[in-house]
């Protein structure tokens, strides 16, 4: 059952990313923004869901659903390999842009994770509570 949830989540996540990439490359003729967007949005959602699943004692989300969303869907939606391949092709043309892209990707994703967690916490408790910083 758990494995089925993971497979289903991975399939949905991969398809969502695929269509996002298709839509963005059709609109802006570049896939770089799509990977950045997918990874940042995926990290944001992970932060949101992690806090939501733990803080929300009312709904008591079953473990299968958490596996489905956090490991299956978000794991399949975000991607590291495409990021690495894009980074390689960028480094050859302009190393400065590649550095900016790499740093931006990591920093924005971690910030998105924190913001997602903070928003989820704010929504559930009506306060920023005690988010340990540093």
């Amino acid at each position: 059952m758990i494995w089925l949830m993971i497979a289903l989540g991975g399939a949905l996540g991969a398809v969502a990313r695929f269509w996002l990439t298709r839509a963005i490359s059709w609109r802006f003729s570049s896939t770089v923004g799509a990977t950045l967007l997918a990874n940042v949005v995926g990290s944001f959602m992970l932060g949101f869901v992690l806090v939501f699943a733990v803080q929300n004692n009312v709904l008591n989300i079953p473990q299968q659903w958490r596996v489905f969303i956090e490991i299956g869907f978000l794991g399949g939606f975000t991607t590291f390999a495409t990021f690495a391949v894009e980074l390689r092709s960028m480094i050859l043309s302009s190393p400065m842009k590649a550095l900016l892209y790499g740093v931006g990707m990591v920093v924005l994703s971690v910030i998105a994770l924190i913001v997602g967690a903070a928003l989820s916490n704010l929504w559930l408790t009506n306060s920023f509570g005690m988010i340990p910083c540093g």
Binding site: G10, G13, A14, R17, A38, N39, G42, S43, M45, L46, G47, L50, E70, I71, L74, G75, G76, F77, T78, T79, F80, A81, T82, F83, M105, V106, S109, V110, A112, L113
Partner: peptide
């Protein structure tokens, strides 16, 4: 792409 993951990485 689904094998690798960025959300777990940033986490």
């Amino acid at each position: 792409s689904a094998f690798t993951t960025f959300s777990a990485f940033s986490h």
